[in-house]
Nucleic acid binder design. Structure first.
Lengths: 218, 218
DNA sequence: ACAAATTTTTAGTTTTGTCTAAATTTAAAT
DNA sequence: ATTTAAATTTAGACAAAACTAAAAATTTGT
């Protein structure tokens, strides 16, 4: 598999949102930041290789084999993201670009050892689940803080908005990846929340709450 | 810099043995496992980019800029090798192929953080020195055990021959990377050695001794 | 249902890095 | 000092992956 082929497989996987939906040539072109005609060419090649089901004018979907390939790439990408944050002190918004490169490294032993080093994490720094070696994974274990019901707790696993001002806010309030968060109360009229984060009670606006992802624990 | 360009720079660097010698087109072709005509093309391109000094029929050498680029690549390659051995449990002979891929990852922050994680190592698992961020490094600090004089000590940093039987021998005799070795005595007639490794005295044949590298400490 | 708009494909180029075969330059040998 | 051999370069072609412009198929609006 070339680098470019892998990128197409991943793009098609993500456009199908993990489900195995059929996606359009145009959608792939936009995702890949390329032209539809280029997509047609590549899609033909990949369907000849047995990775895609392609019907002209009708769109593409991943074959079993393509699905497996995509999951392996997602697994690699997300494990590297965990590594960058946990072991090298990268912040959430810095990891993507580097992981995008690292996910193409070919070595099964490398990725299995990395998995072990990181103690088999289940989610990446954005709260997205990491497929197992066999390609299985739990999905949608993360929720926006604003959608967590009163009384429930979770672990802070990611942000939706990774702009500097937002990250600065989190920093100022000592909110970090991995922190345990419990929703104590909600204000009806403005949607703001009272939460407990590492034994401190703080008041959080609706805007903030709708940009912070939790992995629900209880 | 493309992947291929980086590979040429590294090949030319290694052929010049770190010194800035002029190397021939044919030598580069052999090293890169490609044809001399391909080398000519690439070498022209790289000299236009200011990385190589090229005179037709006379060979190539690295410019200042090329030298710097090569050292950065070597630094990345060797740091990744240390990572693979120290953090992921790879053996000496498994690291090269993977490091060959990892060295192309582009992120200064990544490599600096890795350096820190590994506690700023000075040599890679084969005993070769790791250039600093600025491109400085000590050279030739490793010696074959067979060339270490009686009474001197060193740390086991690498092997010349990484065949399975040899590595198995090392394993059986509890010789591992990082072990401290002292040369006690030499037999004149067969070149075999009496050495002390982690408080055990053992007898080592000339063949073995001439395949084991030490970093001399005293 | 049919014309217009949109999407997708085809055909023909381009760039990067490679190759083969032929030509040229340099080095070696008598 | 020629001739021969070896090394190197040039010329022309090819595969991968992209692009542009034009043609064909599909979808949409009325």
């Amino acid at each position: 598999m070339t680098l470019s082929e892998e990128d197409y497989i991943k793009a098609i996987y993500h456009l199908g949102k993990g489900e195995n939906t059929t996606v359009s040539t145009n959608a792939v072109a936009e995702q890949m930041d390329t032209k539809p005609s280029s997509v047609t060419d590549m899609v033909k090649k990949l369907s000849e290789k047995g990775l895609l089901n392609y019907r002209p004018y009708k769109g593409v979907s991943l074959t079993e084999h393509g699905q497996k390939t995509a999951l392996t790439l997602v697994r690699k990408h997300r494990l590297w993201e965990v590594f960058l944050v946990e072991k090298l002190g990268f912040s959430w918004d810095e990891v993507h670009e580097v992981a995008e490169q690292l996910e193409h490294i070919k070595s099964e032993k490398l990725i299995d050892s990395l998995d072990k080093l990181l103690d088999y994490p289940e989610v990446d720094p954005h709260g997205d689940p990491i497929p197992s070696k066999k390609g299985e994974f739990k999905k949608a274990i993360k929720k926006l803080l604003s959608e967590v019901p009163i009384g429930k707790s979770g672990i802070c696993v990611g942000v939706k908005d990774s702009s500097a001002p937002f990250l600065k806010f989190l920093d100022k309030n000592n909110i970090a990846l991995g922190d345990s968060v419990k929703v104590l109360d909600k204000e009806e009229f403005d949607g703001s929340l009272h939460v407990r984060i590492s034994n401190k009670d703080i008041h959080i606006s609706q805007q903030i709450a709708s940009n912070l992802y939790l992995k629900i624990t209880e």
